[in-house]
């Protein structure tokens, strides 16, 4: 596959530039392999975050030619041989150094979410919870999430409007959905989903779903049903009329 050209962002949150590198690329290499080769040979101190190298941990999220991707699952042969590969950090988060960003905001969102609260009923037995496979499948689908934050990175509310204080973002909407749709969860998160987590902020552009490396149907299966639950609770016309009439 020969020698390939790269442009990689080097710098921090205050200043930085795209630096040119060359790297010999062999069959089967992914973008992360090329970054490691460049790091070992030409740029020992180039920061890059990674762990599993198999699309399971969600550490190596970057933007490759402007598209949010996992560097470990992006093969070099996706690009034409004369194309320069540009690697830049996730745009929605502050840069720590080079392609590494400060994603700590995401960890703070998770803290705001009421965790799993197992129901204490006849299906909570000493042999564990009794739940049918068909009833846990939706929750399991959301739990495939590897927390790569690519969805957070492309969410308009977070990326373009920078309204991080108003919306937890798609990743945590599906975390909420996974709890709300858990057959044995006992907590009510609907008021918080409306008020604290900002479900109304999402205007369903589906950008998050498009970039999800786990193919989670974030918008259709997660966010929209949660929005519907909020609407049912707060904006159902019959309930609203009832509330008005009886001042409840």
């Amino acid at each position: 596959m020969g020698n390939r050209k790269f442009k990689i962002y080097r710098g921090d949150n205050t200043k930085g530039e795209l630096v040119d590198y060359n790297c010999d690329v062999t069959e089967g290499m992914v973008v992360l392999d090329a970054m490691h080769r460049i790091q070992a040979d030409d740029a020992n101190d180039m920061a890059c975050r990674w762990n599993c190298k198999a699309g399971k941990c969600g550490s190596c999220s970057v933007e490759i030619n402007g598209r949010p991707k996992l560097a470990c699952m992006t093969r070099m042969n996706e690009y034409s041989p004369d194309e320069t590969i540009m690697i830049t950090p996730l745009k929605a988060f502050p840069i720590i150094k080079d392609t590494v960003t400060d994603v700590s905001w995401n960890y703070k969102q998770n803290l705001k979410i009421k965790p799993f609260s197992p129901a204490q009923n006849k299906n909570n037995t000493e042999k564990g919870l009794v739940m049918q496979q068909v009833d846990v499948e939706r929750t399991q689908h959301f739990r495939k999430c590897i927390e790569c934050y690519l969805c957070q990175n492309v969410c308009h509310v977070i990326r373009d409007q920078d309204a991080k204080e108003k919306f937890v973002g798609p990743r945590f909407m599906i975390r909420l959905a996974s709890l709300e749709m858990h057959p044995m969860d006992d907590a009510d998160r609907i008021p918080a989903i409306k008020e604290d987590h900002g479900s109304g902020m999402c205007n369903i552009t589906r950008c998050c779903t498009e970039v999800c490396p786990e193919d989670i149907q974030i918008t259709d299966d997660g966010i929209i049903p949660l929005k519907e639950r909020v609407v049912d609770r707060y904006f159902d016309p019959v309930t609203m009329l009832y509330r008005k009439l009886f001042k409840k």
Partner: peptide, 16 residues
Amino acid sequence: EQRGAVFDRTKEGLIN
């Protein structure tokens, strides 16, 4: 499981 893990299930609804 009580802490939130959602394992695959058997036909009886237990952890597979």
